[in-house]
């Protein structure tokens, strides 16, 4: 059965809880909580991507679009219409859902390469919209002045506060998704992945299931986008371009897309790679990403999360 063990979750929770406290006391990693905010934002997205790609077997090369829809919904509605940021997050999610259903319904009938190309094209089109509708989005220069978040007068105005906010949202998404995977819905998704013919013969409405998962992952990406916008207070279109969609794929491939843990490991690792360890490579880091992705595809198809099992298997033989 697909039981998720409790121990790693406990360890993870304690780690997340204590990390800022530890980091504060160690000058060398003082800035790590800031990285972990980004890691959390990525993680929110990769959890949805992992459900979509790893479990349901549907590829998306355009998820940065939903990330951008959330960010711009928050940015535009707060700065130009003075709406409450939390309401903007909801509106962004609703918009992402609507777009996901409209684009997903015809796209998800496609398989494999066709689906990959459709989502890729969709992502590029949305990015062009972000660039071109300057009146709303500020165009390629982006838009600033996006307010931070607060709740009942409590403001998430420090990195540490925002860190906890983001990771609480990640935790909610994580537990929801874990439960989902262990439930009949998760089983139906895995069935679709293994054999669409057999799944539909068992009465599973394939297109509906795919659209629901696609929309769910779009909502997570949109919320991540909003959290990003309210954290950075500034957004521009290049954050939400195709390269970022591909980076999301790299994250889940690196971590391992067949478990939700892979999403967590992949996004945290990626955040550190791109902001800390590969920083000196500057823009050339994409060569490293490409090589890493190539190596993982060839030598580590189950991702880093599959590594311990693989080693254990070797040792036993």
């Amino acid at each position: 059965m697909l039981r998720i063990r409790k121990a790693p979750m406990g360890v993870g929770a304690i780690f997340i809880l204590l990390f800022p406290w530890v980091a504060e006391r160690l000058p060398a990693i003082e800035h790590y909580p800031d990285l972990m905010v980004f890691a959390g934002i990525y993680c929110l997205m990769t959890i949805g991507m992992s459900l979509l790609m790893g479990y349901a077997g549907q590829i998306s090369l355009g998820h940065a679009a939903f990330y951008g829809i959330g960010a711009y919904a928050s940015g535009i509605l707060t700065t130009q219409y003075n709406l409450n940021p939390w309401l903007c997050i909801l509106i962004g999610s609703a918009a992402a859902t609507a777009v996901a259903v409209v684009v997903g319904a015809p796209s998800l009938r496609l398989r494999g390469h066709y689906l990959a190309m459709a989502t890729l094209a969709f992502g590029i089109i949305i990015n062009i919209v972000f660039r071109e509708e300057a009146e709303w989005t500020g165009g390629p220069d982006g838009m600033g002045g996006i307010p931070g978040l607060d709740i009942f007068g409590y403001s998430f105005d420090s990195i540490h506060k925002y860190y906890y906010l983001v990771w609480i949202v990640v935790a909610i998404a994580f537990f929801f998704t874990i439960r989902l995977i262990q439930s009949p819905t998760g089983r139906a998704l895995r069935a679709i992945h293994a054999s669409e013919a057999a799944a539909s013969a068992m009465g599973i409405d394939i297109s509906r299931s795919k659209i629901v998962v696609f929309a769910f992952s779009a909502i997570l990406a949109s919320v991540a986008g909003s959290l990003y916008a309210h954290y950075m207070n500034f957004i521009n279109p290049s954050t939400f371009d195709t390269l970022f969609s591909i980076k999301l794929v790299i994250m889940i491939a690196l971590g391992g897309m067949h478990t939700i843990w892979g999403a967590v490991v992949g996004s945290v690792l990626f955040a550190f790679l791109s902001f800390e360890w590969l920083h000196q490579f500057g823009e050339y880091e994409i060569v490293v990403y490409g090589l890493v992705l190539m190596m993982v595809t060839i030598y580590l198809p189950e991702g880093l999360v599959g590594l311990p099992g693989r080693i254990a298997q070797r040792v036993r033989r």
Binding site: L61, I246, I286, V287, V288, Y289, G290, L293, M294, T297
Partner: peptide, 13 residues
């Protein structure tokens, strides 16, 4: 798909 994407990133980079 992922492999050809990886290759394209490497070539481009």
């Amino acid at each position: 798909i992922i492999a050809t994407i990886a290759a394209s990133i490497v070539i481009k980079g």
